[in-house]
Structures are given as C-alpha cells and as structure tokens.
C-alpha cells in the first residue's frame, strides 16, 4: 500500500501572468492548489474543488478553464492568466471597472472566477463562437443579456449578484467593441 501513497513529484514550468515559474509539484496537485499554495496567487478561489462552481476559473493557454479540474503536472509549459493578471500596470480592465461600477459582486469570493470567465466570454464572442442560445450560427454573436447569462452560467454566485454581473459584462462588451471600432 505504501507505494501507492508515496507522493510522486514532477518538475514543470508555468508562465503565470507573464512570469515564468519552475516548480516541483506533487503529481496529484491541481493547478488551483499550485497557484494558491505554491505561488501565493490566492486570487483564484476554491469553492467546490469539483468543477461545479467556477470560482477557480483562470485563462489556461488563452481559454477559460476550471483550475481545480486541471492537474498542474498535465500543463507543463502552459500559459496561465489569473485575476491578478487582468489589470495592466495598475490599470483595471474594462470588466474590472464595470464590476465595481455595477456592483457585480458582494462577498467577492466568486468574483475572480467571474472576471476570468467574462474576459474569455468577450474573446469567444469576438471570435464568433456561438452559445446554446445563439440563434443565427453564421453571424457574429451579439452579447445581449440572454447571451451573457447563458455564457456566464458556469460561474455560480451565491450572493446573487447576477443582475449586476450581466450589466457589467454588457457594459464592458460595448466599451471594448467601441474601442475596437475606433481602432
């Protein structure tokens, strides 16, 4: 029995919020625990550890993922963006600002996951990815309230801040689109 419970370790490299980390991880360790316990990046939250709440959502190689479901060892060389990496040089992203403005949170525990998810939602819509409620699969999806609700439903908020979250994501989407139109 002892052999099956003796920890096995592996060396991996992670690029987290632009900084490279060389790490020795327990092969059972989730990406979430690695970020929180080894790298001290506690912005990503653990709500369920089972992929059911979205509090741990990060951007993993550019796409949103539940960090509690990812084994760190399986992501050697990956690029990770956490909530700590969303602001640039101390300047909040349009989403972060909109969350504050629209009071898109209360306790704040789901918020890092909501923000990482919403960051990916803007990007997914931009790439033309449809959701379950997109009617015209050929055109570019427009992030109206129904689209936002559908796309943000993997992130639970027990405080019930959804109405603010939907407004915030909508506001940020419009702002981002307007900026792009200008550019």
């Amino acid at each position: 029995m002892d052999s099956e419970v003796t920890p096995v370790h592996a060396e991996i490299t992670l690029l987290v919020n632009g900084t490279e980390h060389r790490l020795r991880v327990d092969t059972r360790a989730s990406l979430l625990d690695t970020l929180r316990e080894d790298l001290g990046l506690t912005g990503s939250k653990k709500g369920c550890d089972h992929g059911q709440c979205g509090a741990c959502t990060v951007l993993l190689d550019g796409r949103r993922a539940n960090a509690c479901l990812a084994l760190a060892v399986a992501h050697d060389g990956a690029e990770v963006v956490t909530v700590e990496g969303l602001a640039r040089d101390g300047r909040l992203s349009a989403l972060q600002e909109a969350f504050i403005e629209q009071d898109g949170f209360q306790c704040g525990y789901c918020t890092p996951g909501q923000l990482c998810s919403a960051t990916a939602v803007l990007d997914e819509a931009e790439r033309g990815w449809p959701s379950a409620v997109t009617e015209d699969l050929r055109g570019d999806p427009v992030l109206d309230d129904d689209e936002i609700r559908e796309r943000m439903s993997g992130n639970l908020c027990r405080c019930g801040a959804y109405t603010g979250i939907v407004k915030a994501v909508g506001e940020a989407a419009r702002k981002t689109q307007a900026e792009e139109a200008k550019a």
Partner: peptide, 11 residues
Amino acid sequence: DRLEGREKVTG
C-alpha cells in the same frame, strides 16, 4: 461603490 471593490476585482 463598495469600498473594497478594487481589492475584490484584482484578487
């Protein structure tokens, strides 16, 4: 606005 808003949205 919630006073701790910035802390909460930056992690």
